[in-house]
Amino acid sequence: MDDIVRQALVKWPNVPHCTGWLLLDRRGNWRMRDEAAQAQGAPGEPIRHEALLGFIHRNYEADARGQWFFQNGPQRVYVELVYTPWIVRLAVDAGGTLTLTDQAGGAFTPAAAWLDDEGGILFTEAAASAGQQPRVAALHDHDLDLFSEHAKIADDGQSGTFHWRADATLPLQTIPRADVAARFGFVASPAAQAAQAADASGDRA
Protein backbone atom coordinates (compact mmCIF):
# COMPACT_ATOMS: atom_id res chain seq x y z
CA MET A 1 0.00 0.00 0.00
CA ASP A 2 1.28 3.47 -0.88
CA ASP A 3 2.51 5.65 2.00
CA ILE A 4 0.21 8.46 0.91
CA VAL A 5 -2.74 6.08 1.25
CA ARG A 6 -1.68 5.03 4.75
CA GLN A 7 -1.41 8.69 5.73
CA ALA A 8 -4.87 9.41 4.35
CA LEU A 9 -6.34 6.53 6.34
CA VAL A 10 -4.86 7.96 9.54
CA LYS A 11 -6.10 11.46 8.75
CA TRP A 12 -9.61 10.40 7.63
CA PRO A 13 -10.31 7.02 9.25
CA ASN A 14 -14.10 6.96 8.92
CA VAL A 15 -14.77 7.61 5.23
CA PRO A 16 -17.69 5.38 4.10
CA HIS A 17 -16.86 2.41 1.90
CA CYS A 18 -17.91 2.34 -1.75
CA THR A 19 -19.39 -0.69 -3.56
CA GLY A 20 -20.46 -1.40 -7.11
CA TRP A 21 -18.30 1.20 -8.86
CA LEU A 22 -15.22 -0.86 -9.76
CA LEU A 23 -15.14 -4.23 -11.54
CA LEU A 24 -12.42 -6.70 -12.55
CA ASP A 25 -13.51 -8.54 -15.67
CA ARG A 26 -12.72 -12.06 -16.86
CA ARG A 27 -9.72 -10.80 -18.86
CA GLY A 28 -8.10 -8.80 -16.07
CA ASN A 29 -9.41 -5.40 -17.18
CA TRP A 30 -10.44 -2.87 -14.56
CA ARG A 31 -13.77 -1.21 -15.35
CA MET A 32 -15.41 1.86 -13.88
CA ARG A 33 -19.16 1.48 -13.43
CA ASP A 34 -21.29 4.59 -13.22
CA GLU A 35 -24.86 4.55 -11.93
CA ALA A 36 -26.25 3.68 -15.37
CA ALA A 37 -23.92 0.70 -15.75
CA GLN A 38 -24.81 -0.53 -12.28
CA ALA A 39 -28.54 -0.19 -12.96
CA GLN A 40 -28.20 -2.16 -16.22
CA GLY A 41 -25.86 -4.78 -14.75
CA ALA A 42 -23.27 -3.73 -17.36
CA PRO A 43 -19.52 -4.20 -16.81
CA GLY A 44 -18.72 -0.51 -17.31
CA GLU A 45 -15.97 1.30 -19.17
CA PRO A 46 -12.40 -0.05 -19.12
CA ILE A 47 -9.82 2.05 -17.30
CA ARG A 48 -6.89 2.76 -19.60
CA HIS A 49 -4.97 5.46 -17.69
CA GLU A 50 -1.63 3.80 -16.86
CA ALA A 51 -0.94 5.84 -13.71
CA LEU A 52 -4.39 5.06 -12.32
CA LEU A 53 -3.99 1.36 -13.13
CA GLY A 54 -0.66 1.33 -11.30
CA PHE A 55 -2.27 3.04 -8.30
CA ILE A 56 -5.06 0.44 -8.22
CA HIS A 57 -2.60 -2.44 -8.44
CA ARG A 58 -0.40 -1.14 -5.62
CA ASN A 59 -3.38 -0.67 -3.32
CA TYR A 60 -5.39 -3.80 -4.12
CA GLU A 61 -6.03 -6.02 -1.10
CA ALA A 62 -8.62 -8.23 0.58
CA ASP A 63 -10.34 -7.76 3.91
CA ALA A 64 -10.88 -10.43 6.54
CA ARG A 65 -14.14 -11.54 4.88
CA GLY A 66 -12.51 -12.15 1.50
CA GLN A 67 -13.83 -8.98 -0.12
CA TRP A 68 -11.27 -7.46 -2.46
CA PHE A 69 -10.92 -3.69 -2.56
CA PHE A 70 -8.88 -0.80 -3.93
CA GLN A 71 -7.86 1.60 -1.16
CA ASN A 72 -8.39 4.95 -2.88
CA GLY A 73 -6.84 7.29 -0.34
CA PRO A 74 -9.10 7.21 2.73
CA GLN A 75 -11.93 5.45 0.88
CA ARG A 76 -12.16 1.69 0.44
CA VAL A 77 -13.61 0.86 -3.00
CA TYR A 78 -14.81 -2.73 -3.05
CA VAL A 79 -14.35 -4.62 -6.32
CA GLU A 80 -16.94 -6.65 -8.20
CA LEU A 81 -15.27 -9.79 -9.56
CA VAL A 82 -16.54 -11.38 -12.76
CA TYR A 83 -14.64 -14.49 -11.71
CA THR A 84 -11.50 -14.55 -9.54
CA PRO A 85 -9.52 -11.77 -7.79
CA TRP A 86 -6.58 -12.43 -10.10
CA ILE A 87 -6.37 -13.07 -13.84
CA VAL A 88 -3.16 -14.48 -15.27
CA ARG A 89 -1.54 -14.58 -18.68
CA LEU A 90 0.48 -17.60 -19.77
CA ALA A 91 3.52 -16.97 -21.96
CA VAL A 92 6.84 -18.46 -22.99
CA ASP A 93 9.95 -16.42 -22.19
CA ALA A 94 13.09 -16.08 -24.31
CA GLY A 95 14.53 -19.21 -22.75
CA GLY A 96 11.48 -21.28 -23.62
CA THR A 97 10.19 -21.40 -20.04
CA LEU A 98 6.52 -20.93 -19.23
CA THR A 99 5.58 -17.88 -17.17
CA LEU A 100 2.38 -16.75 -15.50
CA THR A 101 1.81 -13.03 -14.89
CA ASP A 102 -1.13 -11.51 -13.01
CA GLN A 103 -3.06 -8.40 -14.05
CA ALA A 104 -0.80 -6.24 -11.88
CA GLY A 105 2.29 -7.46 -13.74
CA GLY A 106 3.51 -9.68 -10.92
CA ALA A 107 4.79 -13.24 -11.24
CA PHE A 108 2.36 -16.00 -10.28
CA THR A 109 3.84 -19.34 -9.25
CA PRO A 110 1.25 -22.13 -9.40
CA ALA A 111 1.15 -24.82 -6.75
CA ALA A 112 -2.04 -26.40 -8.12
CA ALA A 113 -4.09 -26.30 -11.32
CA TRP A 114 -7.85 -26.64 -11.70
CA LEU A 115 -10.35 -27.21 -14.50
CA ASP A 116 -13.84 -25.79 -13.98
CA ASP A 117 -17.03 -27.19 -15.48
CA GLU A 118 -17.15 -24.42 -18.13
CA GLY A 119 -13.71 -25.18 -19.54
CA GLY A 120 -11.89 -22.48 -17.58
CA ILE A 121 -8.45 -23.03 -16.09
CA LEU A 122 -7.55 -21.88 -12.59
CA PHE A 123 -4.25 -21.78 -10.74
CA THR A 124 -3.56 -21.43 -7.03
CA GLU A 125 -0.33 -20.45 -5.36
CA ALA A 126 0.89 -21.93 -2.10
CA ALA A 127 -0.66 -20.17 0.90
CA ALA A 128 1.62 -17.47 2.29
CA SER A 129 1.05 -18.70 5.84
CA ALA A 130 -0.82 -21.38 7.77
CA GLY A 131 -4.56 -20.78 7.84
CA GLN A 132 -4.44 -18.27 4.98
CA GLN A 133 -6.23 -18.86 1.69
CA PRO A 134 -3.92 -19.16 -1.34
CA ARG A 135 -4.18 -16.69 -4.18
CA VAL A 136 -6.41 -18.04 -6.94
CA ALA A 137 -6.30 -16.86 -10.54
CA ALA A 138 -8.21 -17.67 -13.70
CA LEU A 139 -6.28 -18.08 -16.93
CA HIS A 140 -7.06 -15.49 -19.62
CA ASP A 141 -9.07 -17.21 -22.35
CA HIS A 142 -6.65 -16.06 -25.06
CA ASP A 143 -4.04 -18.37 -23.53
CA LEU A 144 -6.03 -21.60 -23.56
CA ASP A 145 -4.32 -22.82 -26.75
CA LEU A 146 -0.86 -22.35 -25.22
CA PHE A 147 -2.05 -24.09 -22.07
CA SER A 148 -3.30 -27.04 -24.12
CA GLU A 149 0.15 -27.42 -25.70
CA HIS A 150 1.56 -28.13 -22.23
CA ALA A 151 -1.35 -30.08 -20.78
CA LYS A 152 -2.91 -33.49 -21.14
CA ILE A 153 -6.64 -33.65 -20.43
CA ALA A 154 -8.59 -36.91 -20.30
CA ASP A 155 -11.34 -37.43 -22.86
CA ASP A 156 -13.98 -37.04 -20.16
CA GLY A 157 -12.54 -33.65 -19.16
CA GLN A 158 -12.37 -34.72 -15.53
CA SER A 159 -8.64 -35.17 -15.06
CA GLY A 160 -5.28 -34.41 -16.58
CA THR A 161 -1.90 -32.82 -15.99
CA PHE A 162 -0.19 -29.50 -16.70
CA HIS A 163 3.55 -29.53 -17.43
CA TRP A 164 4.69 -26.31 -15.73
CA ARG A 165 8.40 -27.01 -15.27
CA ALA A 166 10.77 -29.88 -15.99
CA ASP A 167 10.45 -30.83 -12.33
CA ALA A 168 6.84 -29.69 -11.81
CA THR A 169 3.89 -31.39 -13.46
CA LEU A 170 0.66 -30.34 -11.77
CA PRO A 171 -2.36 -32.65 -11.68
CA LEU A 172 -5.52 -31.00 -12.99
CA GLN A 173 -8.21 -30.99 -10.36
CA THR A 174 -11.85 -30.33 -11.21
CA ILE A 175 -14.17 -27.83 -9.58
CA PRO A 176 -17.60 -26.40 -10.44
CA ARG A 177 -17.31 -22.74 -11.32
CA ALA A 178 -20.16 -21.98 -8.91
CA ASP A 179 -18.04 -23.33 -6.03
CA VAL A 180 -14.84 -21.39 -6.72
CA ALA A 181 -15.52 -18.34 -4.53
CA ALA A 182 -16.49 -20.39 -1.50
CA ARG A 183 -13.66 -22.88 -2.03
CA PHE A 184 -11.00 -20.18 -2.14
CA GLY A 185 -12.52 -17.76 0.35
CA PHE A 186 -13.38 -14.66 -1.65
CA VAL A 187 -16.55 -12.65 -2.23
CA ALA A 188 -17.41 -12.13 -5.90
CA SER A 189 -19.87 -9.30 -5.29
CA PRO A 190 -19.35 -7.12 -2.21
CA ALA A 191 -22.19 -4.90 -3.52
CA ALA A 192 -24.65 -7.80 -3.40
CA GLN A 193 -23.43 -8.77 0.05
CA ALA A 194 -23.84 -5.18 1.28
CA ALA A 195 -27.38 -5.06 -0.14
CA GLN A 196 -28.26 -8.32 1.60
CA ALA A 197 -26.89 -7.00 4.88
CA ALA A 198 -28.92 -3.79 4.49
CA ASP A 199 -32.09 -5.80 3.78
CA ALA A 200 -31.48 -7.98 6.82
CA SER A 201 -30.93 -4.91 8.97
CA GLY A 202 -34.17 -3.41 7.69
CA ASP A 203 -36.05 -6.58 8.48
CA ARG A 204 -34.82 -6.44 12.07
CA ALA A 205 -35.75 -2.77 12.48
Rank of each mutant, 00 (worst) to 15 (best):
D2H: 14
V10H: 08
K11P: 02
P13C: 03
P13Q: 02
H17S: 14
L23D: 02
R27F: 07
G28E: 05
W30A: 08
R31A: 04
Q38N: 10
A39C: 06
G41M: 10
P43M: 02
G44Y: 05
L52I: 13
R58G: 14
R58T: 05
R58L: 08
N59F: 03
Y60Q: 06
E61K: 11
A62E: 06
A64M: 07
Q67I: 02
F70N: 09
N72F: 07
P74N: 01
Q75H: 05
R76W: 01
V77F: 02
Y83L: 11
T84E: 03
R89V: 00
R89K: 13
D93P: 07
T101V: 15
A104M: 05
G106T: 04
F108M: 05
P110K: 09
A112Q: 15
W114H: 03
L122F: 10
A126H: 03
Q132D: 13
Q133G: 02
P134Q: 01
S148R: 15
K152M: 07
D155G: 14
H163I: 08
W164S: 03
A166C: 03
A166L: 14
T169M: 07
L170H: 05
Q173E: 14
P176L: 07
P176F: 01
D179G: 00
V180G: 02
F184H: 08
S189L: 07
Q193V: 12
A197V: 10
G202A: 14
D203N: 12
R204Y: 11
